[in-house]
Write a protein that binds this DNA or RNA. Sequence first.
DNA 1: CGCATGTGCTATATTTTGTATAGTAACCGC
DNA 2: GCGGTTACTATACAAAATATAGCACATGCG
Lengths: 110, 110
Amino acid sequence: MFSVVKTEGEATGTCPVSAMTRLLGSRWTMQIIHHLRQPRRYCELQDLVGEVNPTTFTQRLRFLERQGLIARREDPEHARHVEYELTPQGRELLPILDALAAWAQKWLLR
Amino acid sequence: MFSVVKTEGEATGTCPVSAMTRLLGSRWTMQIIHHLRQPRRYCELQDLVGEVNPTTFTQRLRFLERQGLIARREDPEHARHVEYELTPQGRELLPILDALAAWAQKWLLR
DNA sequence: CGCATGTGCTATATTTTGTATAGTAACCGC
DNA sequence: GCGGTTACTATACAAAATATAGCACATGCG
């Protein structure tokens, strides 16, 4: 009775909600973006995000980089100095994140 | 060098971003809320959400109910008629979801 | 009435994802 | 040149999601 338009196998689909979920719907993603309001180094960011483990953390960073939300910058002088920062695409999520945080503040805490 | 305030084991913490992530940061959650703009029956909603499997789907519904974002209503006359709908708490997420969808539309599709 | 089809789930097994823990090479300061 | 920090990777394990099947009740239809 309820017919639904099903896109092919998986791909990106055409539904922005599910597209967005694939990006933000895994653990730590939002936290990472939230704490990247200013450029941060790997360990620094790791500490800010909290109890994330390095395997997942690195994986998430790589994924967000591939998706164009963050950029990884190596200092060519001092090799082991790496900074992560938001791209314009990632930065546009911040006000939305703030709205979500406000919602959480209202309903979840206090 | 970078000290972080660590709350106890897990609990709710005091960071709204991580509180929000625990609620919305698992698969299907956003889709479910998105498709509950009007009250929906189980199967109907399942079809709308897409390729979700019933185990996860039911689990997610129960979780969202426990968290107060959705309500489950059984028709007492016709037992097997169940409807799910958003609570005020859940409904307040819709504009934020729309903003996320608009972001996805801009950057992910087209 | 009796059988097909739909609804709202649950059970079981498997795969996928996330985690804990350890380790490592490069650099940095002293 | 030794100890600590940085930016990771490897391996083994646990938790979460999935596929698939099934099931009791309900409704519709001839």
